[in-house]
Structure formats: structure tokens, C-alpha cells
């Protein structure tokens, strides 16, 4: 399935159907991470139930050092 993640075109296996599975696919499931799906924030509690589909635009952001 083709997606745009952080502005990059990626192809994920068809078994990846939810936000939780997407994070597992990229091995990000243990990280502090915030997910935006088509410009809507998806809170952590909704990762497992939120389905992703062909062409979705996904932003995965985290915290980095700053002042």
C-alpha cells in the first residue's frame, strides 16, 4: 500500500492496516511519537482503532533538543 510518511512516498505491506501496525512496521512503537493522519492528530488511545488507507498522508513527529 502506498502512503506518504513525513513527505516521503513509502510502500508498506498490505498487512499494515492501522496506525499501531504502521508504527510497528517502522519499529517506532516504543518511542514517544505523535501521529497526524491527513492533517488530523490521532491520539495514542486511538492508534489501534484508526485505520490507514491508500494515499494517506501521515506525519510522525517527536521531540528533539531545542531552546
Amino acid at each position: 500500500m502506498k502512503l506518504t510518511v513525513n513527505g516521503v512516498h513509502v510502500v508498506v505491506p498490505s498487512t499494515v492496516e492501522t496506525v499501531t501496525e504502521l508504527l510497528q512496521h517502522f519499529e517506532l512503537n516504543q518511542k514517544v511519537i505523535i501521529v497526524e493522519l491527513n492533517a488530523e492528530i490521532v491520539g495514542k488511545a486511538r492508534h489501534a482503532e484508526t485505520r490507514i488507507s491508500l494515499g494517506d498522508k501521515i506525519e510522525l513527529v517527536h521531540f528533539v533538543g531545542g531552546g
Binding site: V5, N6, G7, V8, V10, F26, E27, L28, K31, I33, I34, E59, L60, V61, H62, F63, V64, G65, G66, G67
Partner: peptide, 13 residues
């Protein structure tokens, strides 16, 4: 304080 930035999805480690 800290900042919010995109993750590098290809360097999860």
C-alpha cells in the same frame, strides 16, 4: 524546553 520535529522513519534506532 525542546522542539517538535519530523522523525527520521528509516532510523528508528
Amino acid at each position: 524546553t525542546f522542539s517538535v520535529r519530523r522523525m527520521n522513519i528509516f532510523e528508528a534506532g
